[in-house]
Design a protein around this nucleic acid. Structure first.
Length: 211
DNA sequence: TCCATGATGGTCT
DNA sequence: GACCATCATGGAA
């Protein structure tokens, strides 16, 4: 049994929290059974100085969790049909979060396939933030959940430590603002990393897939 | 394997 | 009323 991540480990700046989350395992209890996913791709969003962050224009009912303590889920609804899940970072009053973009299913593969029957390959099960959230069964009701609480329906397990040489960074996916910030982090070699897509209005670097 | 496209609703200007 | 931290699908290559 691996240890849960602590709130203190996440109460740091968003880029540090992002790297720290790589290789960690998200576990969720779903109606079909428990699903565990090893995180291989994340993105950092921060405060009022990051125009791409939901917290950029200040606190609203929607983004309130980002301003709260670290180690909590910030789940939001996007494009009229999908949910995306973040883990909050930084301390109370300082808005920050790390978007969980992709992961590899550790267990249970059978449960995962039942939950996401449309996945063409196993690597697609949690490839992309909305797919990952869908696989873990995350929705509005999970907004604000403490992922460092053993009693929580969604938890974050630490490590094992990843080889720092495998950590890659690049521009965030699908964001127009601040596309020059290399605040996307992923583990090199994973086939579950989502394809890069420039945000609307960002400089279009055709076929911009990283290797 | 790649790419274009439609679906769909909350949030903030 | 525009803009989204997107995905499944189907047809082309």
């Amino acid at each position: 049994m691996t240890d849960l991540l602590s709130r203190e480990e996440l109460a740091v700046d968003v880029t540090e929290a992002a790297v720290r989350l790589l290789g960690c395992t998200a576990v969720a209890d779903t109606p079909e059974g428990a699903v565990a996913v090893r995180l291989v791709e994340v993105e950092a969003y921060r405060g009022r100085d990051d125009p791409a962050s939901h917290s950029y224009r200040g606190r609203t009912p929607r983004n309130a969790v980002m301003f709260g303590p670290a180690g909590h889920l910030y789940v939001y609804f996007v494009y009229g049909m999908h949910f995306c899940a973040n883990v909050t970072a930084l301390d109370d009053g300082d808005a920050g979060a790390v978007l969980l973009r992709a992961g590899e299913v550790v267990s249970d593969l059978g449960v995962a396939r039942v939950r996401r029957p449309t996945a063409r390959r196993d690597d697609d099960l949690a490839r992309g933030p909305a797919r990952l959230a869908s696989l873990l069964g995350l929705g509005r009701e999970h907004n604000g959940v403490d992922v460092t609480d053993p009693a929580s329906p969604v938890r974050l397990l630490a490590g094992p430590p990843v080889d720092p040489a495998l950590v890659r960074t690049g521009p965030r996916v699908g964001v127009a603002a601040a596309h020059e910030l290399p605040w996307r982090f992923w583990l090199d070699g994973s086939t579950a990393v989502s394809p890069y897509r420039p945000g609307r209005g960002a400089a279009v670097t055709r076929s911009g897939r990283e290797k």
